[in-house]
Design a binder for these strands. Sequence first.
DNA 1: TCACATCCCATTGACGCCCATAGGGTCCCA
DNA 2: TGGGACCCTATGGGCGTCAATGGGATGTGA
Lengths: 146, 146
Amino acid sequence: MSRFLSHATNRIDSKGRVSVPAAFRSALAQHNIQELYCFQDFVFPAISVGGVDLLERFERQISAADPFSPDANAMSLLIHGGGVFMKLDAEGRLMVTDFIRDFTGISDEVTFVGRSDHFQLWQPQAFQAAQTQAREERKLAGKRST
Amino acid sequence: MSRFLSHATNRIDSKGRVSVPAAFRSALAQHNIQELYCFQDFVFPAISVGGVDLLERFERQISAADPFSPDANAMSLLIHGGGVFMKLDAEGRLMVTDFIRDFTGISDEVTFVGRSDHFQLWQPQAFQAAQTQAREERKLAGKRST
DNA sequence: TCACATCCCATTGACGCCCATAGGGTCCCA
DNA sequence: TGGGACCCTATGGGCGTCAATGGGATGTGA
């Protein structure tokens, strides 16, 4: 198994660090992920975190198209310009940089959200709101299809 | 590894210098890049910076096309006529010349943006805007295809 | 000779590496 | 089955190093 599942909220300490939940850390270890590729999600105000393979998947997508096209240029702007490598400290914490704060609105608490093959960093209220909205939309979709 | 990744904004000092982020400097070192080749991006109001191999790649691209075509001609005009060589000082800073300022609109701060095999210099707000727009376009494209 | 670029050195604030502690849960054994 | 030892997670903080920045001094070309 070892998917990224469920969510948890941890607080940021005075130095701007936050502990990654143990469950996520062990999932990272099982996937042999040492260096974290983090990028600004395309849809939500959240940072997605995964291994280098995540980045490589995007890069394949780019090189499949014409690498000199404006489209590829824009895509690279997002995944390269909007992405960082990070690594955890010895205690399994990561620095919440301005790169993360500015994009997510995170200030003193982080909600970690499992997304199967990666996980995300959310501002707690933003996650609640997005989840509620997703539930509503599914309800509507259910009514339509059933 | 050792790609140019992420973005960071640094201040230009009174002498017109700006520090290249340490991550980018170490990437340059790993690629054995001493002399920086800089040219104006084809799509965005940004200066692209890389090694000579970057220039050579464009030259291959040109010679792959018909060398006498308008396209190859225009491309040569940009990469040869619009390119300069620069080098960093001992502290890893570069001079922000008028060549850079005029094309990007940079005045007192520079946003460095990683683009995998090279990086770019942006005026901070222009980068924010371009990234936001690229994300919007991706969102729309996603909705269409799903 | 003056403007500007380059070389060198100083400062400070941020970040990485290390160790410490509390609280909660678990396991073991009497 | 209750108590206690133990472990592990989350969190706090000290300290050294290095990056980012500022500025003086020296070199060089117009």
